[in-house]
Design a protein around this nucleic acid. Sequence first.
DNA 1: AAATTATTTCGTAATTTTGCGAAATATCAA
DNA 2: TTGATATTTCGCAAAATTACGAAATAATTT
Lengths: 99, 99
Amino acid sequence: MKKNVDFSEKHKQIAIIAKALSHPARVYIIEKLISLNDCCTSGEMIGDIPIARSTLSQHLKELKYAGLIQGEIEPPKIKYCINKENWDKAKQIFNELFK
Amino acid sequence: MKKNVDFSEKHKQIAIIAKALSHPARVYIIEKLISLNDCCTSGEMIGDIPIARSTLSQHLKELKYAGLIQGEIEPPKIKYCINKENWDKAKQIFNELFK
DNA sequence: AAATTATTTCGTAATTTTGCGAAATATCAA
DNA sequence: TTGATATTTCGCAAAATTACGAAATAATTT
């Protein structure tokens, strides 16, 4: 006997973005990329935060999965950048919520 | 051997608020209270979402703990309301992030 | 080919989150 | 005082998150 209701798509979407921003490491990454207004490697981030490289890598992966960032390979480095399109969508959704 | 760095207070604060909003049930609760521009009991919420009463209660507790809502006892009901002061703070912080 | 550099993936452990139903709590009505 | 109403707390289980170090990958330099 299941209830004939579900969370709305909008509420799910907000939750997904909020979840992506629900760890200080991920907030740091996003703010870094925004404030630089440029891309950045994980090696350039690791010195600022108290976690291991492999853990940082996991957080980058999550942000990528959520669509908020993207990685550009530039051997032997990987430059991470804001995914502007999706970030703008997130912006809209949150500006609406916090209107 | 620990690194001599920590996440900034601001990044931690953003993460805490984002975490509070990282589940569709909690987004639903917040939006409900905002759109009503009024308070609301858990009984008035439960019909709209696919979770048990006890689970809803837990989500309300988390939002209360995060400071985003508050409960006003009006026996035998409890009316939940936005904590306007803290919601406005959250607004500021996120409007800054999504500027 | 071996070493170096930058980063990720793997394996694992500890902790937190999410969820439920049953039982508890508290107030009001009959 | 018994019953009805509204909601929470408890006990538990399943799943997800966070974290680390070791090993793997991939490209370049020596």
